[in-house]
Design a binder for these strands. Structure first.
Lengths: 340, 340
DNA sequence: GGTTAGCACTCGGTAGGATCGAGTGCCAGG
DNA sequence: CCTGGCACTCGATCCTACCGAGTGCTAACC
């Protein structure tokens, strides 16, 4: 563990570097509040901090910048627990007061909110669709050969699945009139209402072949999509990435990653699984994110963990502020999704 | 109008510049196929082309690069009409063969497809929700104090609207049991099925105050959201923007624009309204897109113009290839959305 | 022993200067 | 009207000198 002065010096270096993006010299640190010794002493301690792996020099005769370990120590032990800035808090409140309508839209806008608050990229992973019970099922005919299964889940999610009636043979396409579809719809509704989305019970025969075929098609479509349905991911504020980094190469890499939804999902999940709230550099598990840091938080619906939100920015991000933002938005979101 | 040789020279310059992003000198052009004169002659013609505004020199004693006018002439008169490359055609075919499921997902994936095909950013603007008739309406209770109106439109779009029952006074929240909700649901369905989404007829009294209140709440929610529902916009392949430009400043600006959905919608609409298929530089109407070009195409559902797709890239984009990609994807998308 | 002032040293960043070469405009001859 | 030739331009590149922020070390100090 670091003694008090070394910790204060590390903290000063991290804060200064986050602010200026320039290597920090001993003279600056000596002037920093909280450090009351001469620059020579600071130099000695900085050399020690470098030996212990908290700092490094980009090159001889330059100031120090934090290493991953340095940021980690800062986050774990030095970062002043922050409240949200006044007008940010107002913005969050306003957002969730006004938020309404579709879940997707809300999650999408939440990712933007995170981006706006932190000036980094906001990420939201939608709740897993399997964690809910079925509230209502409805079969709606669209054209002669196509219909839609609409499923409402208890968490407010609405799924829809296209059915191609001609797929199941000409008989079905011909024979399925309004009444038959209505019958199948009623049958499905009665059969599935209240069951878990992830466990669809098999359905017996009704005596009408066409109705049975329709129900069967719908059921199979629901079962099919269950596994293949990728988690919804919303990324807001990608342009902040271009603002946070000077090297265009880094921008390219990070944007490329944010575009791969599967990667983003597993990235957040991995970090949460390791019990982390903040992943710095290689802690993210992705080589391309070496210069980045990720702040994650799960959110809940009805007390159950549902999905996660996060912020991706440069390793030299304003951790206190960003952590506060993610925490507050996560809480508010849980609250908003739980109350109904 | 340009004589044949000048046109060939302009074409060679544009193609070379698109390829290399370097100013093109007379010697290169003289070697180009289609130009059989010496570099001195090319120089004379290039000076003339510059005087007429088709080319410009970044600085004295450098090669020429096309101006907006130069690109425009190239697109209008010189661009060889292109077919899609073989494997791209395969990719498009595979995409639309496999495409299924929700409309939103499909449009979202289409924007990615455009990005993949062209290596620029793909943009898709969703169909306007008002252009359809209502196929089915259903009211589903979620919790004691909240319910969901689910509306299926004839074009396959599924709208959902949250209702906050407590908003309408405690009476409603208390008095609305399963049966009342079902009654209201049936009443709404019977009343609205077949009507146009944009013209909701008023609803008379049913004799039950609670049911009436529920119907009223649902109807008002539908009417409310009609106007405020912004057009859905999907942008895919934003990382291509970072790859297409060297100047990080440009990347920042373009990404910033692509994040503003309203701006993107009106951008595409404006360009289409002016009857353009390609907007180059200032033709886009946005100062920040001076170095960009935009290719747009409308798509149709059931023969009616529904939305638009596009590709945003650098002014020095591969116009023939990108135009072919946008055209093909637009047609395929129309076809896919029309067939059911 | 820990702290500090002093000092020699390092080395990236910047500015000035020379050089190179791709590319031009122009002219004279075919 | 086209072309070879030629003087000229000017960004890009390389080199050098220099500056100064910052370091490590040592010797004095409390």
């Amino acid at each position: 563990m670091l003694d008090e002065r070394k910790a204060a010096i590390l903290r000063a270096v991290v804060e200064e570097y986050i602010d200026t993006a320039q290597p920090v010299g001993s003279a600056h640190v000596a002037q920093a509040s909280g450090v009351q010794v001469s620059s020579a002493t600071v130099r000695n301690d900085m050399a020690a901090l470098e030996a212990e792996g908290y700092l490094r020099q980009p090159h001889t005769s330059a100031g120090r910048i934090p290493t991953e370990k340095g940021y980690r120590f800062f986050v774990d032990h030095l970062a002043p627990p922050a409240r949200l800035r006044g007008d940010d808090a107002v913005q969050v409140r306003a957002f969730f007061d006004q938020a309404h309508g579709e879940l997707e839209r809300m999650l999408h806008d939440t990712s933007r909110l995170l981006g706006d608050l932190t000036h980094y990229a906001g990420v939201v992973v939608g709740p897993k669709p399997t964690e809910a019970t079925i509230r209502s099922v409805q079969l709606v005919g669209l054209t002669r050969a196509s219909a839609l299964v609409v499923v409402v889940l208890s968490n407010g999610v609405v799924e829809k699945h296209h059915l191609d009636l001609s797929e199941a043979g000409p008989t079905l396409a011909e024979g399925a009139g309004e009444e038959r579809i209505a019958a199948a719809s009623a049958r499905l509704a009665a059969h599935l209402a209240g069951t878990a989305r992830s466990a669809l019970p098999p359905l017996g025969s009704s005596g009408d072949d066409v109705v049975d075929a329709l129900c069967d098609l719908a059921l199979r479509s629901l079962a099919d999509e269950r596994g293949t349905e990728p988690d919804q991911v919303y990324v807001g504020g990608t342009s902040r990435i271009a603002q946070a980094f000077d090297a265009i190469e880094t921008v390219r890499e990070v944007l490329g990653i944010l575009e791969q939804q599967l990667v983003v999902v597993s990235l957040l999940r991995d970090v949460l699984d390791r019990g982390l709230q903040v992943a710095i550099g290689t802690e993210t598990g992705m080589a391309n994110l070496a210069d980045c840091a990720l702040i994650v938080s799960p959110y809940e619906v009805d007390g159950e963990p549902a999905g996660s939100i996060g912020v991706l920015g440069p390793a030299r991000m304003d951790y206190p502020q960003a952590m506060a933002a993610v925490a507050v938005v996560g809480n508010r979101l849980s609250q908003r999704l739980t109350e109904g």
